[in-house]
Design a protein around this nucleic acid. Sequence first.
DNA 1: TTGCATAACTGTAAAAATTACAAAAATATT
DNA 2: AATATTTTTGTAATTTTTACAGTTATGCAA
Lengths: 137, 137
Amino acid sequence: MKKTKDILENNGINPSYQRLIIYKYLKENQIHPSIDRIYNDLKNTNPTLSKTTVYNTVKLFCEKDLLLRLHCDDKQMRYDINTHDHMHFKCTKCGKLYDINLENNLFDYDYIDNHKINYVHIGLKGICKNCLSDKKD
Amino acid sequence: MKKTKDILENNGINPSYQRLIIYKYLKENQIHPSIDRIYNDLKNTNPTLSKTTVYNTVKLFCEKDLLLRLHCDDKQMRYDINTHDHMHFKCTKCGKLYDINLENNLFDYDYIDNHKINYVHIGLKGICKNCLSDKKD
DNA sequence: TTGCATAACTGTAAAAATTACAAAAATATT
DNA sequence: AATATTTTTGTAATTTTTACAGTTATGCAA
């Protein structure tokens, strides 16, 4: 288990107290949280934390490729610390967001139409298994 | 060539003047425009058009599946009238958004992990061919 | 045609998310 | 210890989107 401090330092990030607790929160709560969610969950134990710091820190993590920006269909941006290849499934009924593993390398193109491909995101939408089993309508 | 009026009516939309010009604009300008772009381009010829009407109309088209909401990495939502299966490629250098055709049916799963799949979006990022050929740095 | 009911449009105001910024606090350096 | 640099904080400003209420347009019956 790598130390959070080392992870940040290896990625060129000065491991301040706020950066450490935010990174740890993201690792321990892989729920694709929004800024607001991160802020509200952390301010209980860290009353002096500022929402601007959360914005700044999350932006920094994204720039260093430690964190991924996730567009749900919500208004708020959400963030994903899971760095393994995976897809996202959003239930259009209950709104829950699921991680789906990418077994086979569906996408290992280096180039498509002469564009260099660096990153692929696959987003799925539909009705999740829980909503399907609720045969209430 | 189908008449815009018929397309709207066939989808249960009352073809008002504003809805017609907005639909025609989207068909003739497949540039994934934002609300702002649509509004600004149309208000030249339609000075009384309200931005709220653009919001309302675009929302209606999306609900009727005539139009797709597209999350770029910009702040503004963008909209896509191209209803054929295709992917999107965003150049992280110049910011341009390209349509990429989906030749093979990469994704024809009905269910994954017992979730019913209704819609798939594949988003690619990288450096586009134009930026690649600009060997200026 | 006239009057009435419904639908659509408009513009302003409000809400929500994000960014800018400057002062304060913490940390590092000389 | 004094100074310089980095980080954090809180407020204000900006931006996008939504709510809403009044106005205008449209459809329909008498």
